[in-house]
Amino acid sequence: MIAYQKLCLGPEGNNDCAMCSVKNEQKTCTLTELIHQVNALADPENLELCGGESTLHKDLLSLISSARGRGAKRIKLVTMGRRLADWDLLTELIDEGCRLFEVRIHGSRPETHEAITGDHGSFDQTVQGLQNLSTLSNSAEYEGAIYVAARVGVTRANLEDLVPTIALLASLGVDRIILARTASDLPTTKAARAVENAMRVAALNRIWSVCEGFPPCLMKGSEMHVAELLRPVLSETQKPKGCRGCTYIDLCNGPPEDVIAQGGLREFRAVSSSPYVEDVRRLLTMRSLHAEP
C-alpha cells in the first residue's frame, strides 16, 4: 500500500536468473550519485533499494545511514536474500535503519529455486537469510519492528511447488507473499489456478498474499488478492477485442504482451460485471498508493 521511491543501486547480482530484466550494461551507482538521488527527492520518507542485488553494493550501509539522515522512515531492501544469511551484515543493516525486506524466493526446495536462479547453493542461503529475519523479528529487541515480504516469481518450473513454497514461507513467519507472473512460457489459466490455490493456503496460514501479472478476468473469486486492483491505476494500453465491454477495461493492463504475441487470448474473457468495480474505482483517488514521479 505504501508508495516507495525506487533507487536502483546497480546491475550487479549473485544469481543468474533466467528472467532477470536488469541489463548488464547498466552501471553501478556510486554512493555520491545515490545520495544525490535521495537529496533530489521531494519526500524521501519511503525508499526502496533494489538492484541487481542490492546487498552487493559496497556502500549500502552508508547509503542507508545517509537516507535516514535525509528523513527516510521506511527503507525497504529488495534482495535475493543470500547475503542476509550473514548474521552480522543483517544486524548492521537493521541497526542502520533498514527494517523492511522483500526477499525473492522461487521454490520450497533447492531444485526448484535453483532451476530459476541458476546458482547452486543459493536456496540454502536465501532460506537462512529468511530464517535470520524471522529470528530477529521474534526477538524482544525487534519484535514487530521488522517487516518481511517474500516475492515468488511464478514460472512453469515452480508451478507445482507453489503450495509447498507457501508452507515454507509460513514457517518462516513472513508478513506478506507476492506471487508474480515472471515467465512468458506459462500456461496462463493453469498458472492462475495454481496461484489461486497457493493464495488460499496462505490465507489458511493467516498470511496476506497477492498476485501480480494475472488480470482480474483470470482471478474471479480471488479479486481481493489481485495487486492491480488493490492499487489501481488508469491503464491506457491498447486491449485486444476480447476485452471490450470488460468492467475492468481501464483498470487492467490486459493480457500480458507475450501471451498476445503467442496468440493465447482465448483464456481471457471480458468481465461483464463485478461487485467490486465501484469500490476499486474509488481507490483511484488515493494518493497514498502511488509514489510521486
Binding site: 500500500m1 521506511r74 519492528a145 515480504a149 490465507a203 493467516r206 498470511i207 496476506w208 481481493m224 488493490l230
Partner: peptide, 22 residues
Amino acid sequence: DQIYNAVLFSSSAAKEYNVALP
C-alpha cells in the same frame, strides 16, 4: 471471507506502515 481477508490485508499493511522509524 471478506472480513477474514480484510483482517489479513490490514494487519499486514498496518505492520508495514508502523515499522517506520522516527
